[in-house]
């Protein structure tokens, strides 16, 4: 295990982020652990409200304080804890060592600056190039991300480009300083499938060429299967399963992962009859159930699941799963009890 630790570029340990609202505390991220190996891709997957986006914002310390606050944990990037850095130090890291691609390319680009200026901005800040050199580099970046006639496009504003083109510009900005880690938060969710295929292909190719490590946050299990090496499945602010991509899709362990995979309508498989479903809905973050958060929706839940939260523990084949079924305790427990709310 020590070997993988040396190779990992990012290690998140026991991260806890909460939002303090008028109605009370929301534990958006509640004890999350994972690591990303150098040059590899980690996928964080989960439904709305699972805390996947807040995890990424916490890593870059982009939370809106004081409403959102990181309460605990460590984010070790190349051996240093990002949570201990000053604001100024963080600014030097963001966009330079770690950069981010957001879901909505229209709202995350500045509408009053040309595409070229926006790419040049980050180059000038981090690489201290002069205006002319930075501009040349930004045109070069546009070319790299496959934008036709980059000289012309660099002088255009975001509204003049299509959604796919805008996402390419976002990628150009994020890769301009050759970051070691790229965090992509739903990078293709707003795009049509044929454009999504182009963008995913582009990200993959650039990752190979530049040796960037990648963290993809998505709700789309197809994207995870195509892009990732490792997967962390999140539910209600916790990682419930953490394994390599093949295991997750061929031999999922956690009942939530299994349910999630079964409820996706597949375009490349015949499904007769009804889809398998997960009953109920995600509990309110203000009123999480005691024990395992998934227990009220879990078909196999027993008394212990409703009472005590299981640990994210290693199974016999090295994957991690947060579920009582895979513990010695399970056999000693009685029959399944459903407690639907």
């Amino acid at each position: 295990m020590s070997l993988t630790k040396e190779e990992s570029i990012l290690e998140v340990r026991n991260l806890r982020t909460s939002f303090f609202t008028d109605e009370g505390e929301v534990k958006a991220v509640d004890g999350v652990d994972f690591s990303i190996e150098k040059g590899k891709t980690l996928g964080i997957v989960g439904e709305s409200g699972s805390g996947k986006s807040i995890t990424s914002l916490s890593i870059l310390r982009l939370l809106q304080e004081p409403v959102g606050r990181i309460k605990e944990g460590e984010v070790i990037f190349k051996g240093e804890d990002l949570l201990k850095k000053s604001k100024k130090q963080m600014m030097a890291i963001r966009g330079n060592n770690i950069s981010m691609i957001f879901q909505e390319p229209m709202t995350s680009l500045n509408p009053t600056l040309t595409c070229g200026e926006q790419i040049a901005e980050s180059i000038r800040i981090h690489q201290k190039l002069n205006k002319k050199k930075a501009w040349e580099k930004s045109v070069e970046m546009l070319k790299l991300v496959g934008i036709p006639s980059p000289e012309k496009r660099a002088k255009q504003y975001p509204f003049e480009l299509s959604g796919g083109m805008r996402q390419r510009v976002m990628i150009a900005i994020s890769l301009a300083c050759n970051p070691e880690l790229l965090i992509a938060d739903e990078p293709t969710t707003a795009l049509d499938v044929t454009i999504q295929a182009q963008i995913l292909e582009l990200i993959k190719k650039l990752q190979e060429d530049m040796g960037t490590s990648l963290m993809i946050i998505t709700h789309d299990l197809g994207v995870v299967a195509e892009m990732c090496d490792k997967v962390a499945v999140m539910y209600c602010g916790k990682v419930v399963e953490y394994a390599d991509v093949k295991t997750v899709f061929t031999d999922p362990k956690h009942p939530y992962t299994i349910g999630l995979l079964n409820s996706v309508p597949k375009h490349d498989e015949d499904v007769e009859g009804d889809l398998a479903i997960i009953t109920g809905s995600v509990p309110s973050p203000f009123n999480l159930p005691s024990g395992c958060s998934f227990a009220p929706r879990c078909p196999s839940a027993k008394e212990i699941c409703h009472a005590t939260l299981p640990e994210l523990a290693e199974t016999s084949d090295g994957d991690k799963v947060r579920c009582w079924i895979y513990t010695d305790q399970w056999e000693k427990e009685g029959e399944a009890v459903s407690r639907h709310e």
Partner: peptide
Amino acid sequence: LSAIPSTNITERRERIIL
């Protein structure tokens, strides 16, 4: 059809990128 990311990880198909 070929552009949709598939959850079928064991069988990889040829992809047509438009």
